[in-house]
């Protein structure tokens, strides 16, 4: 049971003397030979295993990118599937090295919970899905509705805040198990299902008896910047994870892709590209990594745009438009600082 695992993690906090905190995480990761990455139990498009047990998704790509940067091999990752409640204790206790599990960056998590968020790799917002035949066109028409939500997320609080702000009432049905919750919704137990819009799209594409029978309402009632996180107190490791993500975003901006990365490294005259790909040395040493770290990421994982299209975009079942997740120069929010 999940509860058991949470307890085990708490027990680790209580009894453990936590050797993971003795030295730097980067050294510890290098010594053991793989990155221990906390991911979702199974959220299609973000982190989900296929029938052979191979993980893929937008969040999984961050884990792979970090492994590529540290080891030059994106396969050196071990995945720890975590429920929403388990994820923070798992990172706090040192069970995992990094958390890439569609986690919303909030002030309390950044401070009181001892986490450091790296870079937002997906800008999401909480939305509502309703059966099309209900005839609801806007979330403002949901007064008095029964709403299915997953526990252990910011979702419950957003929902209460938004209904209170709009002077409306609702009845929550909170079910811990994803499959039970979605089946309750699809059987009509709730009028609406509320979660991050990306998650609604994934559930509709994969679990709805007939996806066309369900509508995702236009209102987003919250800001959900989803960002991979690391523990407080290890700035070097924070930098490694943060810049691994920036490298993917910068590569997209500069037009460096999986296919052309070798050629760009050999021929590009753009000084920023040369620094990014390690042709001009310095960045790797500063991070404590090989100079070709970013080149390896792009060669093995791809740039941010490639990762997005492959996992959640038009090349996937989810068919989510780039929207806020486009580059800053294309009307989105994705922006990497200079590589110098």
């Amino acid at each position: 049971m999940k509860a058991l695992k949470t307890l085990a993690t708490i027990a680790a906090v209580i009894v453990g003397s936590s050797p993971a905190f003795a030295g730097s995480t980067l050294d510890a990761v290098k010594a053991k030979g793989f990155v221990q990455c906390g991911v979702n139990l199974g959220l299609y498009g973000f982190s989900a295993p296929d029938e052979k047990g191979n993980w893929s998704g937008l969040d999984v790509d961050v884990c792979r990118a970090v492994a590529a940067a540290v080891f030059g091999d994106s396969t050196k990752v071990k995945y720890t599937p975590l429920s929403a409640q388990q994820r923070l204790p798992a990172l706090q206790s040192g069970e995992i090295d990094m958390l890439a599990r569609n986690t919303t960056h909030t002030l309390s998590r950044d401070t009181a919970n001892g986490l450091n968020f790296t870079v937002t790799n997906y800008y999401d917002g909480q939305g509502f899905m309703v059966p099309t035949k209900l005839g609801v066109k806007s979330a403002k028409e949901l007064n008095g509705a029964t709403i299915c939500v997953l526990p252990g997320t910011t979702t419950e609080q957003n929902l209460a805040d938004w209904f209170r702000a709009n002077k409306m009432t609702f009845k929550p049905v909170v079910i811990e198990k994803n499959e039970e919750l979605t089946s309750a919704f699809f059987s009509g137990r709730c009028d609406s299902f509320s979660s991050d819009a990306s998650q609604l799209a994934a559930v509709r594409a994969n679990e709805a008896p007939n996806p066309a029978d369900y509508t995702i309402l236009p209102e987003l009632v919250s800001k959900e910047p989803l960002a991979p996180a690391v523990r407080h107190g290890d700035d070097q490791w924070l930098d490694v994870v943060r810049w691994s993500i920036f490298a993917m975003i910068a590569a997209e901006e500069k037009g460096v892709s999986m296919a052309n990365v070798d050629q760009m490294a050999a021929t590009s005259a753009d000084p920023e590209v040369k620094r990014l790909l390690g042709v001009t040395a310095g960045n790797g040493k500063a991070l404590g990594l090989d100079e070709a770290w970013a080149k390896t990421i792009i060669k093995q994982v791809g740039n941010y745009g490639e990762s997005f299209e492959r996992n959640v975009g038009m090349g996937s079942k989810l068919k989510i438009a780039r929207g806020q997740n486009a580059l800053y120069n294309q009307g989105g929010l994705m922006y990497a600082p200079p590589f110098k």
């Binding site: 509860a3 949470t6 708490i10 929403a84 409640q85 998590r109 252990g152 419950e156 909170v174």
Partner: peptide
């Protein structure tokens, strides 16, 4: 918690997640 009845464990789970104070909640 498995079927969505808001008993003590279910409410405490939500509280734990919102505050991050798992040890106290449990």
């Amino acid at each position: 918690v498995a079927i969505g009845y808001p008993d003590l464990v279910s409410v405490a789970n939500t509280a734990i997640n919102q505050t991050g104070q798992a040890v106290e909640g449990v």
